[in-house]
């Protein structure tokens, strides 16, 4: 695809998209959103870049290979589980180092093992979707392609 409008629009949209995706991830615990939705938003952002500038450009923009991003994501999720196991003796239990329950109200910064887990989910979704999209885009057109009933 080679459209000036798409390219210009995409350039303007990328920061907005990313901001929305990360906000969705961050606010997911208390308001609609979360790792899956944020990840899908970011994946759509990658798809947009890919459509506007091509696979090579999108790969460069991602810096890391997409499957490595997914792998980091899964590692994050597992690490958050181990964090819970170390802190509470219970795999995947929540740990809130900066967040405390004071008289029934949670106060402080809502960052802890759960956010790490959700970020892992986010990264896996982004990585896998990008990886398959890129590979699909790069895959050759079979020579024998002919329409069949």
């Amino acid at each position: 695809m080679n459209s000036i409008i798409l390219r210009t629009g995409t350039r303007a949209l990328i920061p907005v998209f990313l901001f929305v995706a990360l906000m969705t991830l961050w606010r997911g615990h208390n308001d609609p959103g979360g790792g899956f939705i944020g990840g899908l938003l970011a994946a759509i952002c990658v798809a947009l870049i890919e459509k506007a500038f091509g696979v090579a450009q999108a790969r460069r923009w991602l810096i890391l290979p997409p499957m490595m991003i997914a792998g980091i994501g899964l590692s994050c999720a597992i690490l958050s589980g181990l964090w819970g196991a170390l802190a509470n003796g219970w795999f995947l239990s929540s740990v809130w180092p900066l967040y405390a329950n004071v008289d029934g109200k949670w106060e402080g910064l809502a960052a802890g093992s759960i956010l790490l887990f959700d970020s892992g989910v986010f990264l896996v979704v982004v990585g896998v979707v990008s990886a398959i999209l890129f590979a699909l885009e790069e895959a050759g057109v079979p020579e024998s392609r002919k329409d069949e009933p």
């Binding site: 896998v128 979707v129 398959i132 590979a135 699909l136 895959a139 050759g140 079979p142 024998s144 392609r145 069949e148």
Partner: peptide
């Protein structure tokens, strides 16, 4: 996604 790539692969390999 997996089914899609599998379909592609099958078509590629078998030409139908």
């Amino acid at each position: 996604c997996f089914a899609l790539t599998l379909a592609y692969r099958a078509f590629y390999a078998m030409g139908t």
